[in-house]
Structures are given as C-alpha cells and as structure tokens.
Design a protein around this nucleic acid. Sequence first.
DNA 1: CCCAATTTGTTCGTATGTATA
DNA 2: TTATACATACGAACAAATTGG
Lengths: 263, 263
Amino acid sequence: MDTKARMAKVGRAGANSAGAPLYRQAKRELQRLIECGHYGPGATLPSETGLARALGVSIGTLRRAVDELVHEHLLVRRQGRGTYVTSHTAERFLFQFFHVELRPDAPLDAPGEREYPQVTLVDFTRGKADEMEAAALDRPAGDAVFRIDNRLSLAGRAVVHDRITVAAALFKNLTEQHLRARPGTLYSLYQSEFGITVLRARERVRAIAADTDAARILGLPRGQPVLQVHRIALSFGDKPVEYRVSTVHTAMHDYVSLLPQGR
Amino acid sequence: MDTKARMAKVGRAGANSAGAPLYRQAKRELQRLIECGHYGPGATLPSETGLARALGVSIGTLRRAVDELVHEHLLVRRQGRGTYVTSHTAERFLFQFFHVELRPDAPLDAPGEREYPQVTLVDFTRGKADEMEAAALDRPAGDAVFRIDNRLSLAGRAVVHDRITVAAALFKNLTEQHLRARPGTLYSLYQSEFGITVLRARERVRAIAADTDAARILGLPRGQPVLQVHRIALSFGDKPVEYRVSTVHTAMHDYVSLLPQGR
DNA sequence: CCCAATTTGTTCGTATGTATA
DNA sequence: TTATACATACGAACAAATTGG
C-alpha cells in the first residue's frame, strides 16, 4: 500500500522550523489529514510505526501526538486493534455533550445512571439570525439560519427543550426529513450529511422564569424557575457551527458539570 | 542529602507484582508521599533523575507518573526550576473551583474576564448534620458540623451566597477568627490549618425560586429564579471534605461549565 | 554580560509485554 | 499459532529555561 501518500513530512528537530515542538507539528499534520477527510469518521489509521515513518518522526514522538488527539476525543486507541478516528455515537453524545441527569434524591427507582433521552422534533423553520445567534455563530446579523426545536424526555417526562440554530450556509438543504429520518444523534447527522464535525462545546448556565413556550413544551406553569443553557458547539479551529439554547426543567433532574479527570 | 530516605522502591517490571503498570505504582507512591506530608504544599520535589533513582524506575517512567499528577493539578512543573507540590492559591481557586463569570452581553464595562470575588462572612455556626449534609459528607446523620455562610461579590454586586458545611471532626476547633483572619482562599485555610487538601469537586446545578434568606443576602425579590449549585469537594481517595450549596444570582452573571481541554 | 550548573522539555531508538484477529 | 497493533519500560543525547556566580 501507499499509506504515506500525500503525507507531509514535518520539520526536523535541530533547526526547529515552525517554533513548535515536533510532536505538535505531527499532531497538527494528523489533525489536518482528519479535517480534510483523508481519514474520515470511523477510519482506521495506519499503525504507529507506519505513521511515524510516513511523518518522518520517531515512534515516541508520534505516540505523543496521538496522545493529545486522544485526549481531545478526536482519536481512540484500542490495544491490539488500531487507532481510529472518533465518530459521533450515542455514547459520546451522552458523556461529552449531554449534562442532564436524574437527581440523586429523586423519589424514583434508580435507573442506572446515565440515560439517553428520547428526542422529539417540535418545530423546524428557516429564518434570519438575530443578534445573539449571529454573534454566537460568527456570522453577519440577518444571515439565513435553520432553527430546530426539540423536546427531550427522560423516563417518560419532558425535561429539556432545545432551540438549536445553525447557519444555512453550512447546512445546505437541511430538511425536516433529515431530522426525522436520522438513525443516530444530531451530531452524527451533521457529520455524515454535512461533513461538519463537532469537537467540543462551551456552555453557560443561568436561571430564568419559564416563558410561555417553554412552559407549554415542558408541561409546567409559566414563571416557574428553569435552567437556561447557552451552548456554542465548535469544530476544527474553534469554528462555531451550532448555537443552542436549552431550557431544563430541574424539578427531578440536574445539570451536571463534568468533573475534571478521573484516574 | 538523603532524599531517598523513606522512599519505597516500587515493584519491578518483568513480574508485574501489583498488576498495575510501573508508572502507576510510581504515581501512587508519589501521591502517598504528598498525602502523608512528606512533601507538603509548595514543596520542591527532588529532580526527576533523583526521584527516578530513589523510586527505582527509569526517567521515562518517572516522568509519566509525574505527568498524570500534573494533569490532576497535584504537581506543577517549571522548566529550569523544578517540580512543586501545588498549593491553593487564588489563581487555582479562580480557574478550578469558581465558575461564575460576568455575562458576555452584560450592560457593563468589560472587566477583563475572570475576577476574584470579594468574600464576606455572613454567619458561622455549629450544628448537627441533616440528611443531605450527612450523605454528602459520608457521615452519620446528626454528626457535628460547622456551617459557614459567605456572600460573594463581583464588581461590587452581591452575586453568590455560599452555605458551606464541613464535619467538625475534620476541622477541630475551627473558629470565626480563622475565617476572618485568613490571608488566602478558604481552601488554602483548610490546607494550612487543618491539613486537608481539596483536590477536585463534583457539582450539580438546578434552578429554584429564591427563598427569603437568599433573597435578603443577594438583594433580590423573593421567588426570583436563581441557580442552586450543589458541590462536594473531594480530597485524597475521593474522600468528601466539604458540602457547599451556592445560590447564584444570574441576572448579570453565568455559571460557566469548564470546557474540556484547550491545547 | 556571559558562563556554568541544574532542571525540565524534546527526540531518538530499542526491547519486551499484552490484547486482538 | 502466528502476525499485527498498541502499551510499557528503559536509557541516551540534546534543547531550553532558570539561577547564581
């Protein structure tokens, strides 16, 4: 085979061309190959020895580059099998992007920790970005956007209302059918149908009184305190690709801040 | 010197005695030395070559052990200087344990990102642990506890009310003077006066209507939606050492979920 | 200002263990 | 069983930052 095709050798060590350490150059090169689709979601990378040879670095340096990409959830390693490009599974959504959990003191039977929510599409429209949306998506105000309204249920109760905004320019011809027919998570749809990879997200949380829409969708009295989560999902180069405002009914559930590390 | 005194050599590689990899055994040994106070907060560790020799492992293995402890914020490395045991500075509090930030759309002058809050002691009492506190602190209900009520202000506004509960058994003879006289953060007081090291924290967030106390302390109408953050601070071995319920007025501020990585 | 000593950071290479197909 | 891939462990050499003379 020709696994080393189109693979740019990174700079040498002695005269450190780019200023950055060699393992970071190798990392960026790998990142570039994934971003440009040379290794798509779910793809198997060449072996470490092969990659190291192709990139012109030692195995130790290559491993360090891969280490960082694994920490950033862009790659996964499996001993004896190989190294793979991460794809957006339900698992990943649950642990990296879904932060609502049953309250530990809830008067219910304990349903074994994390639960994948049942998602219902409530509304799908096309419109023009308001100030907030435009700023979040780094686009001019008035830019064409799609808005997706989802209701998320846990254990049969409506718990979260998501108002999702994406730029129409990035999601050409997104239709309601896409959303209804998709087999996996929304982010896996972004990836498979539009070539957009969500890597991480920033979230800010505040408390507000439920407005009429939220109250109706979540089935609670208007004015009730609810959580409002503002999320900006980022792709390669920290490019914003989704703005999401979630309204969370926290009578039986919590927003759980992911705890640092856990060795 | 005798830096290698009282330092137990970890098992050999060939016959992997403990089942765990050698670098983890080395890590645990280092962790133990820090926990037992052999290297206190702020202490300088021996050089990597020295530590490696003392522990009977190679420099690469030692570095890997230290790497993990650095990721867990237990150690910090400074090139050319040495490796140090982390101590609880205001900096660390701000970035690892304080998650309230000015809203980006706030109608104010931008005060350069993160701001250290002005803390005012509102109340200090001794009492018996209720159900929640006992469960959180892993103690029998009715156990003696101290309760600390703090008001935190940002830019001159009262934004957070903290109700902190700690076991009296762990904080013997904690007095109001301790709290009023302390020069640094609360966690640095735990560390210097009581030998208790907070390593990480789990937080759960929900929305509630402000009760009378919170309304008074935060200067807002009763019934107003506010954030309620439940935090359990953990020490070595994930032992809970503090239970804290924070009430956050999010009219001008957000609870910011720490974003994963950031290379 | 420069030099030398010390310490961490980077890079290389090799050997061996462990998991998977 | 064999081959392949990642995981662990070792150690050498040099680069870069810091400190003190």
